[in-house]
Design a protein around this nucleic acid. Structure first.
Lengths: 112, 112
DNA sequence: TTCTTATACATAAGAAAATTATGTATATTT
DNA sequence: AAATATACATAATTTTCTTATGTATAAGAA
């Protein structure tokens, strides 16, 4: 688990960013993608992910489309137009936040 | 305020890091320092800060020392020995977390 | 062939960690 | 004199997780 508790607040933005990149993804796929990209550092729990997806959908940022693969259900999510706009803003905010955190924690780091 | 809600989970580590750097600080000073270092990006609210300081003290990571300056109370906090050890660990965790977040959000960034 | 692990969804109970609101008090600036 | 800054604190509420639990199918291991 490690620092799993540390990503509070940024889960939504991570979801949006991945969907922007990948076009469409289903929940389980997102958990695996994040795990792989972070080399096991970040583990999104289902209890956090599914409610987050439902809320983003309710807020009109995501569209959902159900598919059946190998007799198993998959709910593919993709950004709505509103979602695309929001993603730009939230990503900018998150990047700014990361820079600020870096500057606090390790001013020697530089980003290029 | 901006993305003030984004630093969830890392407030304790920020406090520890600053105390490691500065030797001793009082609560209000910490809020101002963080605000300055982040150019106004990060605003620690008092409702978050004071309970956090009290908990770190209760956990034996901080020592407190009261001073009166200009007829006003100041509670100076500094790391205990236990606190110094913990700071090393938590900072390493936070740095690792920041790297992971960066890698997710903007793999093009590089840290040097 | 049975058991475990992986895939895939979901929700409820509880905990953690903030925000917001409120309170006290003194010092400084307008 | 009033407003802002300094300095602490806590209670109520909200947000956002974790943990636990549930359903169901597929694949791989024993």
């Amino acid at each position: 688990m490690g620092n799993s508790k540390l990503y509070k607040g940024s889960l939504n933005t991570i979801i949006l960013k991945l969907l922007e990149e990948q076009g469409k993804m289903y929940g389980y796929e997102i958990t695996q993608k994040v795990k792989n990209l972070s080399k096991g550092e970040l583990n999104i729990t289902e209890g956090a992910l599914y409610p987050a997806l439902h809320k983003l959908e309710a807020d009109g940022l995501l569209d959902v489309e159900v598919e059946k693969v190998d007799n198993r259900l998959r709910k593919y999510y993709k950004l709505t137009e509103k979602g695309e706009k929001e993603t730009v803003n939230r990503l900018a905010e998150l990047e700014e936040f990361i820079r600020s955190m870096q500057n606090l924690v390790n001013p020697n780091w530089s980003i290029e």
